[in-house]
Amino acid sequence: MQPIKLGRITVHKVHEMDSPTPLLMQLPGVTAADLARLKRWYDPGDGELTDDPETSRMTFGVHSFVIEVDGQTILIDTCCGNHKDRSLPEVHQLNTDYLGNLARAGFAPEDIDLVMCTHLHFDHVGWNTRLDGGKWVPTFPNARYLFGRRDYAYFVENPKGEALHYEAFRDSILPVMEAGQGILVDEDHVAHREIGDGVWLEPAFGHSPGCCTVHAQAGGEAAIFWGDVIHHPLQMIRFDLPFAFDADAPQAGRTRQRVMAKAAEEDLLCFPAHFRKTSAGRVKVDGDAYRYEWVPE
Rank of each mutant, 00 (worst) to 15 (best):
Q2V: 11
V11W: 01
D18S: 15
P22M: 06
P28G: 09
Y42R: 04
D43V: 09
L49W: 06
R57W: 14
H63Y: 10
Q72G: 03
D77T: 12
N82Q: 06
D85R: 15
V91K: 00
N95Y: 09
D97T: 10
A103G: 14
A103K: 15
D111W: 08
D113I: 03
T118W: 00
T118M: 03
T118P: 01
H119F: 02
D123H: 09
T129D: 02
L131M: 13
G134Y: 09
F140C: 03
F140T: 05
P141V: 04
A143S: 07
L146Y: 13
F147P: 02
R150N: 10
Y152Q: 05
E157A: 15
L164F: 01
L164D: 01
L184D: 08
H192Y: 11
D197E: 10
W200K: 05
L201M: 14
P203C: 01
G206Y: 02
S208K: 12
Q217G: 05
W226G: 01
V229P: 03
L234G: 04
I237Q: 00
R238E: 10
F239T: 11
L241R: 05
A244N: 12
D248A: 00
A249V: 06
R256A: 06
V259F: 14
D267G: 02
K277E: 15
A280W: 01
V283C: 10
V285A: 13
P296H: 09
